[in-house]
């Protein structure tokens, strides 16, 4: 059940260049949240900017909800100014998350796509499930500290054996994240039960293509301009195979890659 509440900002700290970790006190949402789901968040109470923004849930800690975000436009710039103790309107958790039931899934994150997949990794860890994890970024500087971010609940990526790839070779493998994924898929023996991916659209397309080639199920987390988050405005249309559209907020944001018309998106 989704709920709407005014959540108190516990902390809102930079964890990388233009990247912030927001911690909200929102027990009812945190308790219900599953990896891959999102919340709608109003960055300011006034009429401008008017609309709430969708944010992936990065994790939960007790009754606290963690949001990892990059300052990109007017809304996130305002959000970065939110002070501890202030309140923000938030509703959720919303949408379909990742299906974590697959045997030894492979997690593939690109850039800010780490936000929901770190949450997925945490849940897999908790249940002692084996998985592989791949994390691609432009460069080491482009993202939160590669080995550790202390305090405030950011995740220790190194501990979970994320296989890194960077476009400039400054961290991990020199190249795109799809390269170590391909290597994994080509390995003899057991293939991943599913690939769980979140990141920029070109990466998602490449991952979807790769999974189709190796006949591995692929769950992609998609985004689209969205007004309501609850299935009413029909703004967040994702072209679907066979014509028509799927709503990123209801049928997604995590969609089976085989349902998405990647040519039209």
């Amino acid at each position: 059940m989704s709920i709407s509440l005014k959540a108190k900002v516990m902390s809102n700290q930079p964890v990388g260049p233009e990247i912030f970790l927001l911690t909200l006190e929102a027990p009812a949402i945190a308790d219900a949240a599953r990896p891959g789901q999102f919340v709608m968040l109003r960055v300011s109470p006034g009429p401008d900017p008017l609309l709430a923004r969708p944010f992936s849930i990065h994790g939960v800690e007790g009754g606290k909800l963690l949001i990892l975000y990059q300052v990109k436009g007017k809304g996130t710039k305002l959000l970065a100014q939110a002070r501890p103790g202030s309140e923000l309107l938030v509703w959720g958790p919303l949408g379909r998350g990742f299906d974590l039931a697959a045997e030894r899934p492979a997690l593939v994150a690109g850039g800010m796509g780490i936000a929901p997949l770190a949450f997925a990794a945490e849940r897999l860890e908790e249940r002692g499930a084996a998985f592989d994890a791949f994390y691609g970024l432009a460069s080491k500087e482009a993202f939160i500290a590669w080995d550790s971010v202390s305090g405030d609940g950011a995740f220790f990526l190194e501990d979970w054996g994320w296989n890194g790839a960077s476009e400039d070779g400054s961290v991990g493998l020199h190249g795109l994240v799809t390269e170590p994924l391909r290597t994994r898929l080509e390995q003899d023996g057991e293939r991943p039960g599913a690939v769980l991916a979140c990141g920029p659209l070109p990466m998602l397309k490449a991952v979807a293509l790769l999974c189709a080639e190796f006949e591995v199920a692929c769950q992609t987390s998609l985004e689209a301009p969205m007004a309501c988050g609850v299935g009413a405005c029909l703004g967040c249309a994702i072209p679907s195979v066979g014509g028509g559209y799927l709503r990123a907020c209801q049928e997604g944001p995590v969609m089976d890659a085989s349902l998405v018309d990647w040519k039209k998106i």
Binding site: L51, P225, A227, L234
Partner: peptide, 23 residues
């Protein structure tokens, strides 16, 4: 009706535009 192709909505100053197409 499936409606219009995306993008279907955009935020503007103190408002928003939509072109859903009666999906």
């Amino acid at each position: 009706r499936v409606g219009n192709p995306p993008p279907r909505i955009v935020e503007t100053a103190c408002g928003m535009l939509n072109a859903i197409g009666l999906a």
